[in-house]
Amino acid sequence: MLITSLLPLLARYSLGFDLVAGADGVVTLTVIPRKAESAKAALEPAEARPISITGTAAEIDEQLALGAEGALGQIFAARRDLADQLAEQRKAAEDAKAQAASKAKPAAKTAPTPTAPAKAPAPVAAPADEPLSLY
């Protein structure tokens, strides 16, 4: 039953388990996700972090039996969604960067040629028979 409920996760992940018994029948199950050999994309660091579930053996069995609808399946689904969003954002940022670089290249090739500074207009000389006035 455990393996059958985890089959959907095994398409993307190779799973390692650590099981520790505590006091009063409490058990901690730690699931360590790794990239499955058949998976094409590498796992994001947050997606590959171990997941610990603590409860009684019956509670953990119940959650694992729910498969993708259980706690473990929901955690994996949320992490996968976040990893997909991060991958999309990275691709959009790379595309925008490449587009900006391609727009900058033609502008750099056709840099404007320096022009001579504009000459100030020549002062108009007053007629010789008129006195200069400020008014």
Results as ranks from 00 to 15, higher is better:
1 M>D: 09
3 I>W: 11
4 T>V: 08
5 S>T: 04
6 L>I: 06
7 L>E: 15
11 A>P: 00
11 A>H: 04
14 S>Q: 12
17 F>T: 02
17 F>H: 05
18 D>M: 02
18 D>L: 10
19 L>I: 11
22 G>H: 06
23 A>T: 10
27 V>E: 10
28 T>G: 04
28 T>I: 01
31 V>K: 11
32 I>S: 12
33 P>M: 01
36 A>K: 13
37 E>F: 00
41 A>T: 14
42 A>S: 12
44 E>R: 14
48 A>H: 06
50 P>C: 06
52 S>Y: 01
53 I>C: 03
53 I>D: 00
57 A>Q: 14
57 A>H: 11
59 E>V: 05
59 E>D: 15
60 I>A: 03
62 E>H: 14
63 Q>M: 04
63 Q>R: 08
65 A>M: 03
67 G>Q: 09
70 G>P: 03
70 G>L: 08
71 A>R: 14
72 L>Y: 03
76 F>W: 02
78 A>V: 04
81 D>M: 06
81 D>R: 14
83 A>M: 06
86 L>F: 08
86 L>A: 13
86 L>G: 06
86 L>C: 07
88 E>W: 01
90 R>M: 07
90 R>T: 09
91 K>N: 12
91 K>P: 02
91 K>M: 06
94 E>G: 08
101 A>Q: 10
102 S>T: 05
104 A>T: 09
106 P>D: 05
107 A>T: 11
107 A>G: 09
107 A>N: 11
108 A>I: 09
110 T>R: 14
115 T>G: 13
117 P>T: 06
119 K>P: 05
120 A>L: 14
122 A>E: 13
123 P>A: 10
125 A>P: 03
128 A>E: 03
128 A>V: 00
129 D>Q: 03
130 E>T: 12
132 L>A: 14
133 S>E: 14
134 L>G: 15
135 Y>P: 03
